[in-house]
């Protein structure tokens, strides 16, 4: 019996190609090895999320345009970004279920010769790994378990909230990313307020509040003794990695906490080298972490 290989249209969004190739590189490596086939989107635009605050219809139409491209290709979408997932998933659901909204947005889409039909699904990396690849297969792919590591996770908001729209993991008791982390052999530590937002979405209008939010999370993570933080969203990653030195300066603190994209952690456990997973591109250098992994294996 031949098993069908999962195929997805890869929706990269804006911020990953702009700033976080490390996430794309590591995700592509890991997914290929796990037998997930990625098809490049023939054309796309911003998911729409950044425009929602100023114009809801622009957001809906931008998102629907992307969904129509996927419908034309007859393939489900895989996103790496929480924001892209939340937007495309919710708009897909709204337009499938709400006839009035669908007709209204289809009038806009008709200008581009497009029509939303509602024939595809949208999934985030976390859901493709847990639902389609499956824990067993990931476990089998782990060749060099990271048993000496203790890490923490930051799932982020838009792949779990609002719960009634996403209907996946429980945002009050996050489970999926923790389980995916433990498959690598690393221990995933619980910490206080772990489901809270990183603060990044408002950084364009106010820096002080997101910095305080992220600093508090970093303190809680440090308190349980985590050696790294694992994220699955480019915006959360930027908040904790790229902005970490600035947060340290603003509060006269020293965290030095490496922040890895989940596929980087999984990739290390699967036997890829740090170079292959673009770990050198992280702002907070994970030297101690890599030494720890090395000595844990010796």
């Amino acid at each position: 019996m031949s098993e069908e290989k999962p195929r997805y249209l890869l929706f990269l969004g804006c911020v990953i190609p702009y700033r976080l190739s490390s996430y794309e590189i590591s995700a592509r490596k890991v997914l290929a090895k796990l037998g997930v086939e990625l098809v490049e989107m023939p054309e796309y635009n911003c998911c729409g999320f950044p425009m929602d605050p100023v114009n809801h219809d622009v957001m809906l139409t931008l998102a629907a345009r992307n969904l129509c491209v996927a419908e034309r290709e007859n393939l489900n979408i895989l996103t790496l970004c929480n924001g892209c997932f939340g937007t495309l998933c919710k708009v897909n659901k709204t337009l499938k279920e709400d006839k009035e909204e669908r007709e209204r947005i289809n009038k806009y889409l008709a200008e581009f010769g497009m029509e939303f039909k509602g024939t595809i699904e949208v999934k985030h990396l976390v859901y493709v790994l847990s639902e389609d690849v499956g824990f067993e297969k990931i476990k089998d792919a782990v060749k060099k378990p990271l048993t000496s590591l203790r890490v923490a996770q930051h799932t982020g908001c838009h792949i779990v909230r609002p719960k009634k729209l996403i209907e996946k993991d429980d945002p009050e008791n996050l489970r999926l990313l923790k389980e995916l982390i433990e498959l690598t052999g690393a221990k995933c530590l619980d910490y206080m307020d772990e489901a809270e937002c990183c603060g990044n979405p408002i950084i364009g209008v106010n820096e002080s509040i997101p910095f305080q939010m992220a600093k508090e999370k970093l303190e809680h993570i440090r308190a349980v003794g985590a050696q790294a933080l694992i994220t699955v969203c480019p915006f959360c990653h930027m908040m904790f990695d790229m902005n970490q030195p600035r947060i340290e300066r603003a509060f006269n603190e020293k965290f030095g906490l490496p922040v890895l994209h989940y596929p980087q952690l999984l990739g290390l456990a699967m036997g890829f080298t740090p170079e292959e997973l673009a770990l050198n591109e992280l702002r907070v250098k994970p030297f101690d972490l890599l030494n720890e992994i090395q000595s844990g294996r010796e």
Partner: peptide, 29 residues
């Protein structure tokens, strides 16, 4: 109004099912 991060915690916790983060989006628009 521009300070909401859209984490949607308020939506998940509201006992009256008021989608408060969406209300904020409506007001911003």
């Amino acid at each position: 109004l521009w300070l909401c991060t859209t984490c949607y915690t308020c939506i998940d916790h509201c006992p009256q099912n008021v989608d408060i983060a969406h209300v904020v989006r409506v007001l911003r628009n």
